[in-house]
């Protein structure tokens, strides 16, 4: 599967309620070592109510400059969340359906201080 097919795909819960759109895919380099680096494992999906401008990642990092832009983009993407891959029932280019009892987590990248506006 090509990752670009997942980006911007709608995310629904088990009852079919639309929760948002996939704006990014979180990877962790802890897969089998093949070459110099471990293979990136799909750890989770970042879901946001809107897709545009999320590629700048202000809602996930502690970046606060330029201040006005950072505050605006973080505000624009409030309501974003991370859902672990294990909570995904099925993912395809048509959309992502989450399993019953899925959990939402903070979208902040671990190890980076997340600053709220």
């Amino acid at each position: 599967m090509i990752l670009g097919d997942l980006l911007d795909a709608p995310v629904v819960d088990s009852s079919g309620r639309v929760l948002g759109f996939v704006v990014d895919v979180r990877l962790v380099l802890d897969g089998p070592v093949d070459g110099l680096l471990a293979a990136p494992r799909v750890h989770g999906l970042l879901v946001s109510p809107r897709t545009g401008t999320s590629f700048l990642g202000y809602e996930r990092t502690g970046l606060d400059a330029p201040a006005l832009l950072a505050r605006f983009l973080r505000w624009r993407h409030r309501g974003s969340f991370l859902v672990h891959w294990t909570d995904v029932e099925v993912a395809s280019a048509d959309g992502v359906r989450l399993a019953d009892g899925y959990r939402r987590w903070s979208p902040a990248i671990p190890g980076v201080a997340h600053q709220r506006p």
């Binding site: 979180r26 590629f55 990642g57 903070s106 902040a108 671990p110």
Partner: peptide, 25 residues
């Protein structure tokens, strides 16, 4: 139509063991 309150504080996930990368970022 947003299903959750926008300013909700969500719990921090457990930090995974390997380097974390966001594909698009």
């Amino acid at each position: 139509t947003r299903p959750f309150p926008p300013d909700e504080t969500l719990p921090e996930p457990v930090r995974p063991a390997g380097l974390v990368l966001d594909a698009r970022l």
